[in-house]
Simulated scan of single mutants.
Amino acid sequence: MPNLVENVLIDPLITALQKELLVTISTVDHETGGPNVSAVSWLYAMDARTILLAVNASSRIVDNILHHHNLVVNVMANESVYAIYTQAKVKQKRMENVPLNLSLLQLNIQEVRDVMFYGAKISSTPAFEKTYDLEAAKKLDQQVMDSLRKFT
C-alpha cells in the first residue's frame, strides 16, 4: 500500500501541531549546502496550510532560511511518521511578548508525506522533559505558545 501524500495537513496533524510537541526540522545549510537537522518544540499549526515556528533568532535555522527557503518538519503523530515539506520565511525577526530573543518563522506547506515504513505504526510518541527550572520552563512555554496562537 503506498504511503499517503497530501498538499495540506490532515486533521490529526493539525491537532498534534497545536500543542508543544517534539519534532525535528531539516534545512539546507547556507554554507555547506548539506542538510542541517534540529530538534524543536515551539511550533503551531495555524491551519491546514500554515505552521508557525519560534526559534532562537541567532540560530543557524534562521540563517539557513534567509538563504534557502526549503524546510522539512518531521513529526511522529497519528500512529505514523510524516515529512511536511514547506517554504519558510522569517515573519518576525524578533517576537514580541516573550523574554527570549526568538524569531518567528512562517512555514507554508507544499506537501505532506506519510513516510512510515510499510507494515508498522508508532505505538508511543516521543516524550521529553525540560531539564532546567520547571516553573520557568512552564512560564516560558506558555508565553511562546500564546504568542504563536495570537496569529490565528
Rank of each mutant, 00 (worst) to 15 (best):
T131Y: 00
I122Y: 08
A57D: 11
K139G: 02
S26H: 06
E135M: 13
N56C: 07
N3S: 11
K150P: 01
V90F: 02
E31V: 12
E20T: 11
S59C: 12
L148G: 00
V73I: 15
A88V: 00
Y132C: 09
L9C: 12
I61M: 13
L140Q: 10
L66E: 14
K19A: 07
V28P: 01
L21K: 11
D141M: 05
L107T: 00
Q18G: 03
A77P: 01
D63S: 13
Y44H: 09
K89G: 03
A127S: 14
A39I: 15
N56S: 13
A39V: 15
A88Y: 10
V62I: 13
Q143F: 05
G33H: 08
Q142S: 14
P12G: 10
P126N: 10
Q106K: 10
D63G: 07
P2F: 09
I61Q: 11
T50A: 08
E135V: 05
D29T: 03
P12H: 10
L13D: 01
M95I: 00
V72L: 13
M95W: 00
A45G: 13
L53R: 07
V62H: 14
T125Y: 13
Q110A: 04
Q110S: 08
V28W: 03
Y82E: 05
H69Q: 15
M95V: 00
A137V: 05
K91F: 02
T152I: 11
K89H: 08
K139C: 01
M76V: 07
A127E: 10
H67M: 13
I14T: 15
Y118Q: 14
D146G: 04
H69Y: 12
Q110K: 09
V81P: 09
V75T: 15
V115T: 14
K19G: 01
A88T: 00
N70K: 12
L9A: 03
D63L: 12
L21M: 06
A57W: 14
V8Q: 13
V73D: 02
K121C: 06
R49V: 11
E31T: 12
N7H: 12
S80F: 07
L13N: 05
Q110P: 02
L21G: 02
F151S: 03
L102W: 00
D133M: 15
K139N: 09
T27I: 00
V23N: 03
L13A: 03
Y82C: 04
E20S: 09
N56P: 13
H30K: 12
K130S: 09
A54P: 01
V112Y: 06
K89D: 10
D141H: 05
G34K: 08
A83Y: 06
K93H: 12
F151H: 13
Q143D: 09
M145R: 03
N97V: 02
V144Q: 04
I14R: 07
Q92F: 04
V40M: 10
I122F: 05
A57R: 10
K121S: 08
A77Q: 03
D11H: 08
I122L: 09
T15I: 14
E111G: 01
F117R: 07
K139Y: 05
R60M: 12
L17G: 00
Y44A: 11
N56I: 03
E135H: 04
G119L: 02
D29G: 12
L53S: 10
W42M: 13
N70R: 11
L71N: 06
